[in-house]
Amino acid sequence: MPVSALRLAVAINPHASFGRRADVGPRVVEALRAAGHTVFSLHEANIELLRLSVQESVLAGIDALVVVGGDGMVSLGTNVAAGTALPLAIVACGTGNDLARGLGIPTGNTAESVQYLLESLTRPPRAIDAARVCHGGLTTWFAGALSAGFDAVVNERANLMTRPKGASRYIFALLRELLTFRPIAYRVTVDGVTSEVRAMLISVANNVSIGGGMRIAPEAKIDDGFLDLFQVKPLSRLAFLRVFPKVFSGTHTGHPRVELRLCRSVRIEAEGVVAYADGERVGALPVQVDIAPGALLLYV
Rank of each mutant, 00 (worst) to 15 (best):
F248P: 03
A292K: 10
I291G: 04
F244M: 14
D228C: 14
V247A: 15
V273E: 09
H255N: 08
F244R: 05
F240W: 06
G272C: 00
P256L: 13
R242T: 08
I291S: 06
I291K: 06
A239H: 03
Y299G: 03
I291L: 12
R242I: 04
D278R: 02
R242C: 09
R264T: 12
A270Q: 02
L285Y: 09
F230C: 15
S265C: 07
V274L: 08
A295D: 12
R257V: 05
D278Y: 00
V243R: 03
V247G: 06
V247E: 08
V273F: 05
D278S: 01
V232P: 08
I291V: 15
L235W: 02
K246A: 14
P256G: 10
P256R: 14
Y276L: 04
P245F: 11
L285K: 10
S249F: 14
D278W: 01
C263I: 06
V266S: 05
R242W: 14
A277H: 02
P234S: 12
A292H: 11
A239C: 00
A270V: 02
K233Y: 07
I291T: 04
K246E: 14
L241R: 13
L229S: 02
L238Q: 05
V274F: 05
R257C: 11
E269C: 03
G272N: 14
F240S: 03
V274N: 02
G279V: 04
A292Y: 05
F244G: 05
F244L: 13
R264H: 11
S236N: 05
A295F: 06
L227D: 09
L296Q: 10
I291P: 04
T251A: 15
D224C: 11
R281G: 04
R264I: 03
S265I: 02
H252L: 11
V289G: 10
R264L: 03
D290R: 07
F240R: 03
K233W: 01
K246V: 03
P256E: 08
G283W: 01
